[in-house]
Design a protein around this nucleic acid. Structure first.
Lengths: 336, 336
DNA sequence: CGTCAGCATTACAACGATGCAAAGCGATGT
DNA sequence: ACATCGCTTTGCATCGTTGTAATGCTGACG
């Protein structure tokens, strides 16, 4: 069995409370006493029982992070950043993944999966505002990602519209005119709408037509979905001279298909992705991509949870934009 | 504040324990009583406080998973599998990452990072046997990965030597003779030694020389490390006709350098990786790779932790081999 | 009608830690 | 020598839940 305060107290010949005071660095403990108790603590190898502490104090030191899928390197990289950011505050991260399914996301938001947590950082895909409106859970919640809700929860993301606009403007500056968008989620009410809006706005601003036939829906957000969408576009007889993808995986899947069809990147088709995952930096053609500042997203998410825990007013939600940059690589090199 | 058993008991006009019995589906509760209490539970929206339950029962329902780096898709994919496997047993996963550093790995193994866990699944990189020998922690531990220790802990991995042998044998069967190995960790006592041994054994068995000049060390396990190692090899005047990499990321990094130097894959240089990460299936040249059965690794790891929790003898450790297969793709296509 | 078996319900203690308030103790002032 | 002050140390209750043991109650049986 584990060593408890009681054992240490017995060993040191003092009261339980005194040991507790030493452990918690309370004032009003004489150096002598502190030393004596510390000795017993060390000898017995005492370590506080966080469960008990939590029961008493109402804190666990754990924040949950619920992501659509860990297999997507963007989320994996983000998770790593969150773990680090949490560690800075002596917090650990409990990981959950929802598969981007609405029922799972709802369950997680209501605390059904993990109930021993101080806060929740959730990156929703299909969750609807109404699902959250019914949330009775007192646990602080922070939302990440592209979905926007008019609800009293902090929301952290980059300015997706502006970032998408910048990406497409970059393609236009290279002289591209027929710019496809890959990755509007098929059959969804909110299909990647912010990035799609940025695409449209950039085209409008340049006096180009936003041809909806160049918008290809996908079922998911992986390589295979990008490949399928690209193939569909080409099979339908379209030959865009540039592609802006919802994310890097879709872009990479698309690039694969483009080269299978004998199209050169960037000469024939320039490609821009979104997320700046490591993978995009090492393909045969490196990928130009919008690079969200993952570290600061993670940091702000953790800080939001902690500030809510420390009594920040929960009714006024903040919409926080993290930084981003467009990283240009081979897939948009030179003039097309 | 949250609703507790006490509140429900008051509301229903019964004792706390009776409510507890209803909640836990204990026998010896009359249907009438059960209905009455259930009504109060529903009306008040009671949900058990897991922290208190855990304090009482000594279990938290959380297993920790400590990985070297989440940024590596192999580990991210594995983490996703572990989360799923744990969920099947109503367990959630607490994620930690060690950066593959020995001090972090030691801390994690001793429970310093996360102290609210029922078990720990650890994938060590630099941890030494002595670090674990001093482990006093009563929490069940399972080890994953290539490192082998003669210690009383279950260890789950694939048969790295056999898998590496098979990969290299495949290259030999394509007529390749000068087969490089990329990824022995530089300056380490146990540099990827199992996969390296498989490489050597396959060459020996085929009557080929295992030329140690074709073994290139790396600093880490990422794309950049593979690229650097490949560049170093080529710069030194070596021109292998095949490359076997410690993992897919290193392989992909190497492929990038190979094509930069105008070498064709697989015509000039065939490449085999290890891990079968999704990324390898969507490059310009898809990557042949050893594919460990991640799902069953995850499942067995979780089951090992749970069986230890349920009193399985801890002194006799098991060495468990999961399945794997060699998936052939474009990077080793046809005859060279 | 009284007794007892047997099930339903309850009271109490405990898991380990901490907040609060009271008790202990040495030093100081008169 | 004694009252007082102030810091150190302690005892007790408590967080929400569950295991154990005791109690209450109903109905069957003699």
């Amino acid at each position: 069995m584990r060593v408890s305060l009681k054992d240490v107290a017995l060993h040191a010949g003092v009261s339980i409370k005194t040991v507790s005071n030493v452990v918690n660095d309370q004032p009003h403990v004489t150096p002598t006493m502190r030393a004596r108790v510390q000795k017993s603590i060390d000898e017995l190898g005492y370590r506080p029982n966080l469960t008990a502490r939590h029961l008493r104090k109402g804190r666990t030191g754990i924040v949950a992070l619920a992501l659509p899928e860990l297999g997507n390197p963007y989320f994996a990289e983000l998770a790593a950043e969150v773990v680090d950011a949490a560690a800075e505050h002596d917090y650990t991260v409990l990981l959950d993944h929802t598969g981007g399914r609405r029922d799972q996301e709802t369950l997680v938001s209501q605390g059904f999966r993990a109930r021993v947590i101080d806060g929740l950082i959730l990156s929703p895909i299909e969750l609807e505002a109404e699902d959250l409106r019914q949330r009775a859970e007192p646990v602080p919640l922070v939302l990440l990602g592209e979905r926007e809700y008019d609800l009293p929860y902090d929301h952290i993301s980059i300015d997706n519209v502006a970032a998408a606009r910048e990406a497409v403007r970059h393609l236009i500056s290279l002289g591209r005119r027929d710019i496809a968008f890959l990755g509007a989620r098929r059959g969804r009410s909110q299909p990647a709408h912010l990035r799609l809006r940025g695409w449209r706005e950039a085209l409008d601003a340049a006096g180009l037509v936003a041809d909806h036939r160049l918008v290809a829906a996908t079922d998911g957000w992986g390589h295979a979905d990008g490949a399928a969408a690209m193939a569909r576009l080409l099979d339908a007889g379209h030959r865009p001279d540039a592609v802006f993808a919802y994310n890097d995986l879709i872009a990479i899947g698309a690039m694969r298909v483009l080269s299978e069809r004998g199209l050169r990147i960037p000469e024939d088709v320039a490609v821009v992705g979104f997320d700046d995952v490591v993978e995009g930096r090492f393909g045969a053609v490196t990928l130009t991509s919008v690079s969200p500042d993952k570290a600061s997203i993670a940091r702000m998410a953790v800080e939001s949870v902690l500030s809510q825990l420390n009594g920040a007013p929960r009714h006024q939600a903040r919409r926080i934009h993290a930084g981003y940059s467009l990283v240009e690589r081979e897939s948009t090199l030179g003039r097309g």
